[in-house]
Amino acid sequence: MTDASTSTPPRRMRLNFHVFGPLLAMVAVMVIGASLNLSFLSPENLTNVAARSAFIGIIAVGMTFVITAGGIDLSVGAMAAFVAGVMIMVMNALVPVMGAGVPLIMVGMATALLVGGAAGMLNGVLIAKVRIEAFIVTLGSMGIYRSLVTWLADGGTLSLDFTLRGVYRPVYYEGILGLSWPIIVFAIVAILGELAMRHTAYGRHCAAIGANEQVAVYSAVKVARVRMATYVVLGMLVGLATIMYVPRLGSASGNTGVLWELEAIAAVIIGGTVLKGGFGRVWGTVIGVLILSLIGNILNLASIVSPYLNGAIQGVIVILAVVLQRESKSAD
């Protein structure tokens, strides 16, 4: 006697499509890109795209855990701007004391991780302990960080000390084996994230909380602690992304990181993570980030449509990518 009446039809055949959907979408985007412009496949272009994906990508990996655990963080873009602002101010202030050298850069990096972690902790405490809706908390902190950085910059731009810029610049522009540091760091974060999500109790607990918080509570999962950790880790990853970002232009303003939060969330969802939580896929997020960057890149390279429509094309592809997965999901 089996429970055949409630079991589902076989799902092997189309399951693969569901799993590889984002990957196929990325390949399709790349084929289109290559057919429109030959320089698309040049190593320079591809490394450019990978490097510029790194900031959002690093953040999106952290966002994957937050969303998998049933949360959301709208504050990451503003947080990145704030962290960058604080980092630049601290480093500028310490130049006379420490001199423009590697130790000062290290201090700057530590500052970024610390400020990011603290900002994430603040979100986490309000959400997990005080139990305020994540959407509201992070919407609020988004406004706070955005205003703070504008205020710190006095409405203008905070620029890194010129002598420091020379020392720090290689962190964005150089690397090893032809790969720049942002790409390497992004790759490491992605691999660690994937391992954590799939192969550690932490990842399992995040998914359990997102799927059904009650079940997690009854299964002796430390829900508040795990949930808070997702925000703290995300905050630290924002700090890490900022460490890669600041050497690129050496500045931060009220305009830095605008809409990063939405790009990160979109990348997570394109990658197959469920927006309401319960299931997360870090490698999918990586693909999602790359898809978004590639689309922008192709639109710049090809100018087939009016640049006024760039946003529309990105929107269509984002929705399509998710619809494709939904189609195949109904089969399993």
């Binding site: 006095d154 409405g155 009220g254």
Partner: peptide
């Protein structure tokens, strides 16, 4: 002051 120019204007 959301942009450099507006920042200058505010200033």
């Amino acid at each position: 002051a959301t942009h450099g120019f507006m920042g200058g204007l505010n200033f």
